[in-house]
Amino acid sequence: GCCDFHKNKHHKKLRYGFRELSQLARESQFTVNEVEALYELFKKLSSSIIDDGLIHKEELQLALFKSPHSENLFLDRVFYLFDEKKNGVIEFDEFVHALNVFHPYAPTEDKIDFAFRLYDLRQTGFIEREEVKQMVIAILLESDMNLSDDLLEAIIDKTFADADADNDGKINKEEWKAFVLRHPNLLKNMTLPYLKDITTVFPSFVFNTEVEE
């Protein structure tokens, strides 16, 4: 009856029908078949620890770093940006929206914006010197690379001399945009070439497809 449905609401996995899938295709670079292939990926990721049709932070962590439990700065930021509704889980529509930014054909503007939000660790509207330092230190630790503090400061000095046009010690959105347009290779990690061929990476979507394209 009606009440059973409501009782089960939180345990019931969301089903995505043709309407929802084509809506997601309309608001992204993906075709309906590609959205379906992404749904295969989403199902895999969202059931790796808790099979509830939602990606929990530990599941994203497991997918990215093969371990559900190590602290990672980047993971925290990515999860935060994927989780549009800020309810602690990534739903399928949020997954599609975020990956859309990483599509090879997504507007550069969107990639610039996403990278800015990613690196603005404290969400102050600026990428601050301390944040850049924190990220570089995190990377050095992970890769077992050793850099003296002097050298690290020199790298950051040089970076800010180039990026921080108004010299106020922090990079604002406009400065970021100008900087990245001068160094487009900095946006490389904002593009996932696989997304262009997602239906070949996850061909099993054909077993569940709602539409033959």
Partner: peptide, 25 residues
């Protein structure tokens, strides 16, 4: 030559700032 590199180059090149692993490749 790390000093010839800018900090964001280090960050964006790092394996941990990359989503490629999502695809299990």
């Amino acid at each position: 030559k790390p000093v010839s590199m800018n900090a964001f180059e280090l960050i964006s090149r790092s394996q941990s700032f990359n989503l490629e692993n999502l695809f299990g490749k």
